[in-house]
């Protein structure tokens, strides 16, 4: 079963990085990645399919326009079934608590520790299978 994951970050190079990091998983067809570079774009992506195929959203917090935390609230309101985890350069307790209270699954800090991210995604995939 293929898992579709959406990654939201205003830094476009994140896409290349993720695609290389999850190269094997993508190649084997067990993982599909899609990307959005702002909160608005992320909502558009989720809105484009009914129901959305995306099962997990990883979002940056600091973005121009809609912040990751606002996006989190909106996703949780409209698509409570989708898991959302935050990835932020600012790992302070204020951000952490706000994210957790709004229903975030995990809170990752930048620089991204891909090992723990892989574990998280691996757990998701095995859960699905």
């Amino acid at each position: 079963m293929k898992s579709k994951i959406l990654i939201v970050d205003d830094e476009k190079d994140v896409e290349m990085l993720f695609r290389q990091k999850f190269r094997k998983e993508i190649k084997s067809g067990s993982l599909e990645l899609c990307f959005a570079f702002s909160g608005d774009e992320a909502l558009t992506v989720l809105d484009s399919e009914h129901p959305p195929q995306v099962v997990y959203v990883f979002s940056d917090i600091n973005m121009p326009g809609m912040s990751g935390l606002e996006l989190l609230e909106k996703i949780k309101n409209r698509f409570p079934q989708i898991n959302v985890s935050m990835i932020s350069a600012y790992g302070d307790s204020q951000n952490y608590e706000k994210a957790m209270n709004s229903g975030a699954k995990e809170f990752f800090t930048k620089p991204i520790d891909f090992d723990s991210l892989k574990k998280e995604i691996g757990a998701l995939m095995s859960e699905k299978n």
Partner: peptide, 21 residues
């Protein structure tokens, strides 16, 4: 700090992933 941290993260990440590649 944020503006430097971001490119530094990319430098680290891309060099890590290159080693793997």
């Amino acid at each position: 700090a944020h503006e430097i941290q971001n490119p530094l993260n990319f430098v680290n990440n891309f060099s890590d992933v290159s080693t793997e590649l």
